[in-house]
Nucleic acid binder design. Structure first.
Lengths: 161, 161
DNA sequence: AAAGAAAGTTAGTCTAATCTAATATTACTA
DNA sequence: TAGTAATATTAGATTAGACTAACTTTCTTT
């Protein structure tokens, strides 16, 4: 029993992490509701996660993440969060679409790409003027009207380094 | 028989488009090799695509896209291309990873998000100085060293508008 | 044109992920 | 505390997508 997970199983793990964060106690029903699948499906998934050593689960009991499960889950959840951030704050997609898209693609990125995306979002966020907020505003204008807003140009100022 | 496609089936369609572009004639074997799956698997998929009216296929013959199949395939392929562009040119991931990641996530984005991404890439590409190429160079530095390169600052110059 | 190679198809099996229906356990409440 | 409601599990069926092995058709090569 290797530790190769299907993206499906990763979804369950991520859901458990999210529920854990707000409830501290996670049950089959909670996952079922959150993820929108039947309880038997959740049970089967928990069984798999348990065999992989990612959760502990006794019959009729709570579901608890192992150390390993938590680490992996956090990683997946991080991907999710950075994607949401990129979609919402940079591309400016509406929240629902962002959430939906992020869920679908979060398992597809390799670790390295995620690292780059994290850096990229940070880079954009911390851009000195005229990038940063204005830069994003400018993109929004560009998206809407197909051209850059008029009214300012920028030029590079060399500093003695 | 609706026109709801699994992303799996979309992969086949996309592969057909790509092969069509370079070979003009597409056979089961070509798809099998390109996509790395057995010929029976390809046959089964072609059967599905055929029932959906996206390809025409007579036994032992070539595979041809219908008008509808071509339209849809192009759309999927467009997503692929814009993702590759974003990954390679903006995030600067290595080509293999870019290709791999793009394949995995290309079915996950909603049409609207793709539109935004297309605009975004264009926006970055056409950024006037100090964005554009320099801006991307700057990001690369940022990715590598965790901070912006020293040596220039920018300031906004208002033009009479 | 006949033989062998390549390509395509069919048949049957497997796994992952889902479901519903039925059963079992636990929790709540009157 | 007894009965009901909520939750959890088991059993069994279904679907999609993959495979191998065996068979059929088409192509190629001598």
């Amino acid at each position: 029993m290797g530790l190769k997970l299907t993206s499906n199983i990763e979804d369950y793990l991520e859901t458990i992490i999210m529920l854990h964060k707000k409830n501290r106690v996670v049950r089959v029903r909670d996952i079922s509701r959150k993820i929108g699948l039947s309880m038997p499906s959740v049970c089967a998934a928990i069984e798999v996660l348990s065999k992989k050593g990612l959760v502990n689960h006794e019959k009729y009991g709570y579901i608890e993440l192992t150390r390993e499960g938590e680490n992996l889950g956090e990683k997946i959840y991080d991907s999710h969060k950075i994607l949401i951030k990129f979609l919402k704050e940079i591309l400016n997609t509406d929240p629902q679409t962002a959430e939906k898209d992020a869920c679908k693609i979060e398992h597809g990125f390799s670790a390295n790409t995620i690292k780059r995306l994290i850096a990229f979002v940070k880079f954009v966020e911390t851009c000195p003027h005229p990038e940063g907020a204005d830069w994003l505003k400018s993109f929004n204008y560009f998206y809407k009207y197909g051209k850059r807003p008029k009214g300012y140009k920028v030029r590079k100022i060399k500093e003695k380094s």
